[in-house]
């Protein structure tokens, strides 16, 4: 069983925020889903998934990119070619 406190902590880690009234139903559904995932304990031992494709590398060449003005125009607050963000400190 995952407790409400644990759900709250994961929500913090994931930066999704969680309201007080949401916490009980989120915790209930979360536990129901984890209960279902317990079927994975019955998976026979074996190796993990092997993607049958190799890593693809390309030459590091400059190619045309998106117009800077158009991309900056999507941001709510762009200044001098930069994008404003909330404070980190």
């Amino acid at each position: 069983m995952v407790s409400e406190e644990e759900v709250l902590r994961i929500a913090e880690l994931a930066d999704i925020g969680i309201g007080k009234e949401e916490l009980p139903p989120f915790t209930r559904d979360f536990n129901a889903i984890l209960d279902y995932f317990a079927v994975l304990d019955r998976v026979p031992a074996g190796e993990g998934w092997k993607a049958e494709i190799a890593n693809v590398l390309r030459e590091d060449e400059v190619t045309p990119s998106l117009p800077r003005e158009e991309v900056l125009a999507l941001a709510d607050a762009a200044e001098d070619g930069y994008i404003r963000a909330p404070r980190v400190m």
């Binding site: 930066d15 925020g17 969680i18 991309v71 941001a75 404003r84 963000a85 909330p86 404070r87 980190v88």
Partner: peptide, 22 residues
């Protein structure tokens, strides 16, 4: 930050992002 509804720039980033995402 780069697109979509703007976060509250006055708040610390975890708090600001949580608000937008919630």
């Amino acid at each position: 930050v780069r697109y979509g509804p703007a976060p509250d720039y006055r708040k610390p980033w975890h708090e600001a992002f949580q608000e937008v995402r919630m």
